[in-house]
Design a protein around this nucleic acid. Structure first.
Length: 258
DNA sequence: ATGGCTGCTTTGAGCAGA
C-alpha cells in the first residue's frame, strides 16, 4: 500500500497549519506541493519534521516553488529538469521512494496568463521541453509518477462551463495537445482509470463564490506509467480543506496503489 | 462587460495567479 498526493498550497508559510493537519489526517507516503512562494531559507521544514515528515524543497523569492514531504527520506532528489528553458524558475522537484522504487516527479506547469501572450508561448515551450526530458531521462516501463499542478484541464468534462472556457487559458487546444503528447509518451491520468463523470474539480477561483457554486476546473493531475496503472486502486480529490478559513484555491488529490 | 479574491512585495499599488 502506497499513497502519493499533490496540493498547490499557494504559499507554504500561510498554509503551513492546513498542510500539517492534512498530513496528520491522511498520512500519505509523499505529498507534493506547489507554489510554496518561499526561498529555501524561508521554508518551514521544522514544522513538518515535528510530525514525522522529511522535507525536500526548491524555492525562489515570491513565485513558484515546489517541495516533497515524505515519511521516509527520498533518494536521488533533483530540483529542476534537464532541458528546463528557465532553470531559475522553481517548478520541478523529483525523488525516489526507496522501498517501492517509484520515481516521483512533482511539477508546477507555467500558468500561461492569456492565450497568445508571451507567457502562453513559454508554457507551450516548457511542456515540450518537459516531454523531451521524459524521453531522454526516463522510460515508460519504469515505475514513474508525474503529478502536480498542470494548469491544463484535459477535457471539457473537467471544466464547469466548457462553452465559456473554450479556447481560453487552461483549456485551449494547443495546451491540451501538449499535455496529450506527454501522456502519449507513456503516462496515464489515473483519476480517469476510476471515474468517467465530469464535475470533479481541483481548483476554484477565490472570486465570485466559485467553491460554493462549484464552478471549478480539474487542473491538478496524477499521471503514472504502465507498471503503476494496474496497481492504482483509488484517486480522491479532497474538497474539505478548500472549505476551511483562509484556504488554498486548490484541493489536494491523493492516489493510492496496491 | 468588467471584475470579482488572495499572496507577495524593500508597504502599498501593482503584479501574478487561474
Amino acid at each position: 500500500m502506497l499513497s502519493i498526493a499533490t496540493w498547490n498550497v499557494n504559499s507554504i508559510r500561510v498554509r503551513q497549519a492546513h498542510v500539517r493537519t492534512w498530513l496528520q489526517t491522511h498520512a500519505p507516503d509523499v505529498l507534493c506541493i506547489q507554489e510554496t512562494k518561499a526561498t529555501d531559507d524561508q521554508f518551514p521544514a521544522a514544522a513538518f519534521e515535528e510530525i514525522g515528515y522529511h522535507a525536500s524543497f526548491a524555492g525562489q523569492k515570491t513565485y513558484n516553488g515546489v517541495a516533497l514531504l515524505s515519511r521516509e527520506p527520498l533518494g536521488a532528489v533533483e530540483a529542476g529538469f534537464f532541458g528546463d528553458p528557465e532553470p531559475a524558475q522553481s517548478r520541478v522537484i523529483a525523488g525516489t521512494l526507496g522501498v517501492a522504487g517509484v520515481r516521483v516527479v512533482n511539477v508546477y506547469v507555467p500558468n500561461g496568463s492569456e492565450v497568445g501572450s508571451a507567457k502562453y508561448a513559454y508554457k507551450l515551450e516548457w511542456l515540450a521541453a518537459f516531454r523531451r526530458f521524459l524521453e531522454s531521462r526516463h522510460d515508460p516501463s519504469e515505475p514513474l509518477v508525474v503529478l502536480g499542478d498542470f494548469n491544463i484541464a484535459p477535457e471539457d468534462r473537467d471544466v464547469h462551463d466548457p462553452a465559456a472556457w473554450q479556447g481560453q487559458i487552461l483549456c485551449s487546444e494547443p495546451e491540451r495537445e501538449a499535455l496529450g503528447a506527454i501522456q502519449t509518451w507513456g503516462l496515464t491520468d489515473l483519476l480517469r482509470q476510476h471515474e468517467v463523470r465530469g464535475g470533479l474539480y481541483t481548483w476554484w477561483d477565490y472570486r465570485a463564490a466559485s467553491f460554493r457554486r462549484n464552478t471549478g476546473l480539474r487542473i491538478d493531475l496524477i499521471l503514472a506509467t504502465a507498471p503503476l496503472v494496474p496497481r492504482s486502486t483509488e484517486v480522491a480529490i479532497d474538497r474539505e480543506p478548500r472549505g476551511l478559513e483562509q484556504p488554498s484555491d486548490h484541493a489536494p488529490v491523493v492516489a493510492r496503489f496496491a
